[in-house]
Design a binder for these strands. Structure first.
Length: 582
RNA sequence: CGGGAUGUAGCUCAGCUUGGCUAGAGCGCCUGGUUUGGGACCAGGAAGUCGCAGGUUCGAAUCCUGUCAUCCCGACCA
């Protein structure tokens, strides 16, 4: 492609609306333009990169034995009503009614395709002999994000590769899951993305039933916990603290319990400040409604409760903070003064709570707290649980390392669904004894746009983008320094034609602009290999070749240059491919 | 949905506090010329419903009210 004949609107200045690096660079390099919050046009350069990512995803899905199909984005709302996800998605699900003749039809724009694919397979699968099978598509998804942000990282319309596996046994599901997991590792490696697979909230099957693939990045929306030894990585929602259940006994130096006046001190900070003690000395007593039961959850003052962990510890379906009436019913006091001593409900505690000697807790009485509270003497615990979010410095649950917290961009997710959708949509198969069972499913998503945005976010320098060869919109950029010089253009045109003939993706900057201007744009759009033709070099019979990441220009005789460039690209491809795990 | 900020030319911004003639600059764009190895220079030129609506006023980019949009923080995120 000739630069003058395509549309690459580079910008010298940073658009004021863009804050994160990927957004700034993708705008400046002419990859995207915004239509509205959360909706972006992919300009020619951006679309080429997106399609390259798409091609890698498609190739690896095919290699993993998944079969491609294409489902409608437009979906009937009743499928979502059957699975309960109309209310689960709430406002995120874009849905509306349209008039068809004399009736109204209620439609949704697919935020994902579990319903559609399960409905489809329920009609197509009848026997265990047809299983297992994995299908996938690459398609635009729609979600009415409450707050689209970070440019292209979080949008209301995005390209997703979604795959769904259908199995007749847990063993088949495990195999399908592992194939997808391995394919994901290869996909991100081929895209040049340093992803971290982390354990994620896993839903009904439990165990290692869900992994997210995270790009470590300062602007990532997810918090990821990882061990310094590399033995463990998990989403903060999921991460174990690595703490063990302590022996529950009253400390030898337990002080007497005292009731103290703490007017209007209802928060941990206020109480700590008022009594001049560290928040680590306090016990937070959170009153939860677990299904229909009211429960007091004890967490150390400086820790954050994790509702998923609480729900699992209580074996409840749902947990939510209790309302004021329920709190007053068990504490006999207004909100903010709950404590374990004398409370009228079940108590569960985090591992770190009984370790606090002479704790400060609420007194279950307005404007009062207790000091010198000790487990075993003042309140009783049978056991303790992991109920809080992990923190930096916690021990690693799998090794002798410690945990640290990093931010990450979620670019992929693999998930063992189980039978949630097949049960609600009646997708069943008959086994060899003609017994009917719900099909066991898995789902596997990749945000294709996030591959591009993630690269822009993490692979750049002060001059612009740095694309890996596999995703770069063009592999080679030919720069004739002066397009008004016939001798320069003769060489440039020959190179351009020969590179194309050799199957390289080549862009030629044929604009009548000064060299410095072209170099700045070249750095900005980040094409991996640059061939510079003109000036003194050409008089000496040489052209210059430079990697975007390199510091040195390599001078090559004009006659050898075509072969040299073709070879450099081939070698880089080979060395990139060698880094991809089998 | 709660909090904060911003809307003036394609982009970055000034002008607004204290209302006053034809609304400015840099970059970009067009024409001509000189230039040509890290975002050139000279001369000329085009381009703006000052987000939108209403109000106050002799007079509004500027003051008031409403509204829309965008960005950031938080809540939310199968």
């Amino acid at each position: 492609m000739r630069w003058s004949q395509t549309l690459i609107p580079t910008m010298k200045e940073i658009p004021s609306d863009a804050e994160v690096p990927s957004h700034q660079l993708m705008l400046r390099a002419g990859l995207i333009r915004q239509l509205m919050a959360g909706a972006y046009t992919y300009l020619p350069l951006g679309y080429r990169a997106l399609r390259k990512a798409e091609a890698i995803v498609r190739h690896e899905m095919d290699q993993a034995g998944a079969v491609e199909l294409f489902m409608p984005a437009l979906q009937p709302i009743d499928l979502f009503e059957k699975t309960g996800r109309k209310s689960a998605f709430g406002n995120v699900l874009i849905n509306f009614t349209v008039q068809r003749g004399d009736r109204k039809v209620h439609l949704a724009l697919g935020p994902t395709h579990e319903e559609v694919v399960t409905d489809l397979m329920s009609r197509l699968i009848s026997s265990y002999r047809q299983l297992p099978i994995t299908v996938y598509q690459i398609q635009t998804k729609f979600r009415n994000e409450e707050r689209p942000r970070f440019g292209v990282l979080r949008t209301s319309e995005f390209l997703m590769k979604d795959a769904y596996s259908f199995a007749s046994s847990l063993e088949q599901l495990d195999t399908a899951y592992q194939k997808m997991y391995n394919a994901y590792v290869r996909i991100f490696a081929r895209c040049g993305l340093p992803v971290l697979p982390v354990e994620a909230e896993s839903g009904p099957i439990g165990g290692d039933a869900s992994h997210e693939f995270m790009i470590p990045a300062a602007n990532g929306e997810d918090s990821v916990v990882r061990s310094t030894t590399g033995a463990y990585a998990a989403n903060l929602e999921r991460a174990e603290t690595g703490r063990k259940a302590p022996t529950i006994e009253t400390a030898a130096n337990a002080a007497a319990m005292q009731k103290v006046l703490t007017p209007n001190a209802t928060s941990i900070e206020a109480v700590a400040k008022f009594l001049k003690v560290s928040p680590t000395q306090l016990v937070k007593t959170l009153i939860y409604k677990a299904d229909d039961k009211t429960v007091a959850v004890l967490i150390r003052g400086d820790h954050e409760a994790n509702e998923n962990k609480i729900r699992r510890a209580l074996k409840a379906k749902t947990v939510a903070l209790a309302d004021t009436a329920a709190i007053e019913a068990v504490t006999g006091a207004p909100t903010g003064f709950a404590g374990p001593v004398g409370i009228k409900c079940e108590i569960i505690a985090d591992h770190d709570v009984p370790l606090i000697t002479n704790a400060v807790t609420g007194a279950n009485e307005a404007d009062h707290h207790l000091t010198g509270v000790n487990v075993g003497r003042d309140y009783q615990l049978a056991t303790t649980y992991d109920l809080r979010n992990a923190q930096a410095g916690d021990p690693c649950p799998r090794s002798d390392g410690t945990l640290e917290i990093v931010h990450g961009i979620e670019v992929g997710h693999v998930f063992k669904l189980g039978t949630k959708y097949s049960v609600s949509l009646g997708a069943e198969f008959a086994d060899e004894k003609e017994q009917r069972h719900p099909i066991i499913m898995g789902c596997y998503g990749i945000g294709v746009n996030r591959i591009i945005a993630g690269l822009a976010e993490t692979s750049h320098d002060e001059n612009g983008l740095i694309w890996p060869l596999s995703i770069a919109p063009y592999e080679v950029l030919v720069i004739p320094l002066n397009v008004t010089e016939a001798s320069t253009m003769e060489v440039a045109e020959k190179f351009y034609a020969e590179f194309q003939a050799a199957g390289l993706d080549v862009l030629m900057d044929d604009r009548d602009a000064r060299p410095g201007f072209k170099f700045k744009d070249a750095d900005l759009i980040g094409i991996p290999l640059r061939v510079i033709i003109g000036g003194k070099g050409l008089k000496e019979g040489q052209v210059e070749v430079k990697w975007r990441t390199g510091t040195e220009n390599v001078k090559v005789p004009v006659g050898d240059a075509i072969q040299t460039v073709i070879q450099m690209i081939a070698e880089r491809k080979a060395s990139d491919a060698a880094k991809v795990p089998q």
